[in-house]
Amino acid sequence: MITEIAPAPERVAPEPARARGRRRAWDEVPRWQIYVPLGIYLLFTLIPFYWILLFALRPAGSTSLVPWPMTFDHFQKVWTERSFGTYFANSVYVGIATLLLTTVVALAGGYALARFDFKVKRGFMLALLCSQFVPGALLLVPLFQIFAKLQMINSLGSVVLAETVFQLPLSMILISGFIRNVPYSLEEAAWVDGCNRLTAFRIVVLPLLRPGLIAVGSFAFVHAWNHFLFALMFLSDQSKQTIPVGLNTLMSADSVDLGALAAGGIIAAVPVVIVFAFIQKWLITGFSAGAVKG
């Protein structure tokens, strides 16, 4: 007769005295001391968003503090008359192309930094880190000269390459930290089973890097989507410009169309908000994983 053996009850480790003291002190804090500062911070954060929605949805010339009657004329104006449909498509192209190029190159470089030792490795890592202190404005002149010789001025490819160059150092450092968190023994086991290095990386390592790749890719996409300087300097044709440059065209020395500017700002912000809403779990996991052994 076969009887099922009940699993032994799990033993819960006793809570350290210091942790119990912190938890007890936290429980004794009055709730208003927590919720009042959080409420003030939330109010301070949401007021600018409400102000943008107010100008975008209320009729031109209205001074009401409530967007009623509600109108979408400002959105229609910036999308059709101000060519925001073209700007939006260009920004999507630049963002996705930068995401893919940055992720692929940083993945190869990060693997080399994580798995191979060479004489100048420490100096190379230091150079990558120090490059983050260089402002993007200092790269404009050399990049402009390079793109001019390559006949890439007024091309979306020039903005993609410039954004990739600007974001590669940090992306390589982050991905190298992600790869160090993957045990080297997993790759060795794949080699024993007959896989070469590339196959072992694709089958064993790459699936474990999903949170890190999502974090790096989303960071590259958002930066390319919001960056204004490179698009302004390398793109002169209006049909090639991106959303940040398009927003700048709504402001002139004489007047500013606040309704159109607010509608354009919402159009620019919605894709980023949607992206972060879907990947926030992967983003937090990826950045925390890369920070452990980076």
Rank of each mutant, 00 (worst) to 15 (best):
A108E: 02
V94D: 08
T103Q: 09
G123M: 08
A137R: 00
S91P: 09
V94G: 09
Q132I: 06
V104R: 01
L107F: 10
L101F: 12
F84C: 02
K121G: 06
A108Q: 07
V105S: 04
V134R: 01
I96D: 00
A108I: 14
G109T: 07
K121S: 13
R122Y: 05
L107Q: 04
T103H: 02
F124K: 00
F124W: 07
V94L: 06
N90C: 03
L101K: 04
F124R: 00
A112N: 10
V92P: 05
Q132R: 11
A114H: 12
I96K: 00
L101D: 08
A89M: 13
Y87L: 10
L113I: 13
G109C: 12
G95R: 07
L99P: 04
Y87E: 06
F88W: 04
A97N: 07
T98R: 07
L107I: 06
Y111D: 07
F116S: 10
G123P: 03
T98E: 06
Y87T: 07
A97R: 02
S91W: 05
G109I: 06
Y111R: 15
A108V: 15
R122H: 11
R115A: 06
F116W: 13
T86A: 14
F88C: 04
F88Y: 14
G85T: 14
D117E: 15
G109F: 09
G123D: 02
V104T: 11
F133W: 03
R122W: 05
Y93C: 08
T98I: 07
A127Y: 10
A137G: 00
G136C: 00
T98L: 09
L107V: 08
L128V: 04
N90V: 02
L107E: 03
G136S: 13
V120S: 14
F118Y: 14
L99W: 05
Y87N: 10
F116I: 12
V92T: 13
M125A: 13
R122N: 14
R115P: 06
L129V: 12
G109Q: 05
L100E: 00
A89N: 08
F124N: 01
F118I: 05
V134I: 15
G110L: 11
A108F: 15
S91Q: 05
T86I: 15
A137V: 14
T102W: 01
L99M: 15
L113T: 09
L129D: 01
P135V: 03
S131R: 05
V105M: 11
R115T: 12
T102P: 02
T103M: 13
L99A: 04
G109A: 14
A114D: 12
F133Q: 05
F118H: 09
D117L: 01
Q132D: 01
V92K: 02
Y111G: 00
L129W: 07
G136P: 02
T98Q: 08
C130E: 03
T102N: 10
G136H: 08
A114Y: 11
G123Y: 11
L126M: 12
V134K: 00
G123V: 05
G95D: 06
T103W: 01
V105R: 04
T98W: 07
K121W: 02
G136R: 06
M125Y: 01
F118T: 08
V105D: 03
C130I: 14
A127H: 01
G95Y: 05
T102F: 02
N90E: 06
Q132W: 02
V120Y: 11
T86L: 12
N90Q: 03
